[in-house]
């Protein structure tokens, strides 16, 4: 069972997404930058030039290292680039949520959680 004690101080959302998604979500007010010495952002803008290793590092940072993030939002087409990491990520905290982006419509078949849902329903 996932440790149920450490969810108390998780109060932020994190985003890994393309520019438009990140902009929109920041406009909603989820952006947070930690106080000066580290200046850690809770969002990562990914474009065609971003390396997969950078995405992975950010994912790793948001899911394992930072203890104040409760939900990680990631664009589905970006999740596809590090699919094996998403599929092997089974912890309950923080929650990883795949979201659609403007250019890439949402495909329920690729979502790691929805696939489990479908498997359970025997489809």
């Amino acid at each position: 069972m996932a440790s149920q004690a450490d969810y108390k101080d998780r109060q932020f959302l994190a985003v890994i997404g393309d520019e438009d998604s990140v902009t929109g979500l920041l406009l909603a007010g989820i952006g947070h930058v930690t106080s000066p010495p580290d200046n850690q952002k809770n969002f990562l803008v990914v474009d065609n030039k971003t390396e997969n290793s950078a995405i992975e590092a950010a994912f790793e940072n948001f899911t394992t290292e930072r203890k104040d993030i409760g939900i990680v939002l990631i664009n589905q087409h970006i999740a596809d680039r590090i699919r094996y990491r998403i599929d092997t990520y089974i912890q309950a905290f923080p929650t990883v949520l795949e979201i659609p982006s403007k250019d890439h419509p949402y495909d329920p078949e690729k979502d790691s959680v929805l696939r489990r849902v479908r498997r359970l329903f025997g489809e």
Partner: peptide
């Protein structure tokens, strides 16, 4: 494009979450 401006001006989260059981 306002993306850059927004990314730079994000400082503290206005939208937060709370976990309950």
């Amino acid at each position: 494009n306002i993306g850059y401006q927004i990314q730079e001006s994000a400082k503290s989260a206005r939208f937060r979450i709370r976990a309950k059981q």
